[in-house]
Computed example of a mutant assay.
Amino acid sequence: MARYSRICVCTTGLILSLLALLPSLRQATLTSHAKPPRRFFPAGSAVIDFPYGNMNPIVDLLQKEEILFVMYYAPWCAQSVSVREEFQKAAKYLIDKVKFVGVNCWWPEGSCRNTYKFLKYPELYVYHTNLDGFRFNGIPTADELVRFVEDILYPITLLHSVESINNFSALHDNVVIGNFDLSTPTPPGYKTYYISAMRMIEWNHLQPVKFSIVNKPLLSQLLGMNDTKQFVILNLNGSFVSICVQKKIFILK
């Protein structure tokens, strides 16, 4: 009996010791650090990957690059995984023109997670110089990603003849034609016009309102623009409505 009493006492003591350790064990579990994040895009990819979600390198890149295409991802997200391959294909196609960047915006210690509160992943943004980002809202296939970036790169078309105006209007349902003096580096109103063209692409990149410019006096006069900083909108029926002079003309169709 004495032997069994000693066993019971030892067992009881062991259980009590374990119970006493439970709070510290639970605390250790709760405060344990998450495993370090791994690369989301493979080594050798055309996409520059920031798995720790640090935004500072992106700011530095924007000082050197005209255009950045950034994919904010969550590594656990099935949609992020699905878009990853398409994003890499687009990056490879545009490797000589645009830098593609991936940022783990789910890593809790990263500045991205602490800065942005995205409701879904991935989020895709094109950053142009010091302007705010242009959000991609379409279906993220490689072809559509490339098309979106190229439209942002070249948002305005120079029209140098009546024939080019006809061809441009035939390709696009909605056309805006501006009249600017391009002999100066930054003619008045041009920057606003340029940004507006990019915002239209962001709003609907599949059927955007396409922006263009004429800089020949004869063309601008034919379109009812007798001064610079004026622009006209080409309606679907082919008529031009001058916003400044309110004159309809039918010279092209």
Rank of each mutant, 00 (worst) to 15 (best):
N54C: 11
K35R: 09
K216T: 13
V126N: 03
P187A: 09
V175R: 01
S82R: 14
D143R: 15
S169Q: 13
L22V: 12
P75F: 01
R199I: 05
N167D: 14
I233W: 10
V146R: 03
P42Y: 11
N166K: 09
P155E: 00
E66R: 12
L222A: 09
L252E: 12
L21R: 08
Y73D: 15
K248P: 09
N167H: 09
V101N: 01
N204D: 15
K99C: 04
A90K: 02
L206R: 13
H205V: 00
T192M: 10
E202H: 11
S239M: 12
F87R: 08
N174F: 13
K99D: 08
I156Q: 07
H160F: 13
V162G: 13
L62M: 15
Q88C: 12
V176R: 07
A46C: 04
I201Q: 09
Q88R: 11
L219S: 02
P208I: 08
L62Y: 10
A2W: 11
F180V: 02
M198D: 04
R3W: 07
K229G: 07
K210A: 06
S169P: 01
P23D: 01
E65Y: 07
M225E: 03
K64I: 05
N137Y: 14
L171V: 09
L94P: 06
K117V: 09
P155T: 05
I195C: 08
